[in-house]
Design a protein around this nucleic acid. Sequence first.
DNA 1: ATGGTTGCAGCGCAA
Length: 257
Amino acid sequence: MLKIATWNINSIRTRLPNLVTWLKETSPDVVLLQETKVTDDQFPLEDLETLHYNVSFHGQKSYNGVAILSKFPIEDVTCGIPLFEDEQARYIEAVIKGMRIASVYVPNGMAVGSDKYLYKLDFLERLYKHIQTLLTYDEKLILGGDFNIAPQDQDVYDPQEWHEQVLCSTPEREKFRSLVYLGLTDALRAMYPLEKELYTWWDYRAGSWQNNFGLRIDHFLLSPQAADTLTEAYVEKAVRGLDKTSDHAPVVCQLAL
DNA sequence: ATGGTTGCAGCGCAA
């Protein structure tokens, strides 16, 4: 069994004690991180190597940043989406145990129609093209991360309040759906097709956590070869309730290997 | 509540 998690940790330096505790308690084989918010020279590499993780990372100052932790060797690391010139560190891909695994931090988009929103749609288009290429390899592909998209109203605590707002607007949802239509499986939703309160992010503001005002915006997308091995998927919701925690909870997939 | 909170950088910006 292989346990793989994705988690937007919102600063790996601030969250390091939480991350270390969580790694010790849950012992995932592979972890995809987003929003590390640290340059590569300041990445807390040794703290993770002490816990017997191999680590690959792609960071920048203050914002964004992605990483992959693995108990198994990490090969063929690619930083950034190939053929996409992007100053922002939002994508890292590698091969682990013969599986191609990527950690993605899709732009938030700020507001529908803004420059950042257009950048988000462009990023999703570039991601789509790249995944299309990767799928021609017919291998186990695992794309996990913070997509900043709630795919359906079912994934939102108050669909009316969020109607056509950023994270829920039709163009972004179409981009997400186009990825799924390439033949990828939304692992968490596949396991719990009817569950309504399947959230991964709760805003720090306005008592969102206390009121369970959440959205499902962190996802695992699996190629057919990977989806065939899927045995379980879940949100580690309790992590969101800890002190000094990220506004995202980890999502975990278990694969029979 | 056109608010609210957090992280980083350094007193505004991104989320």
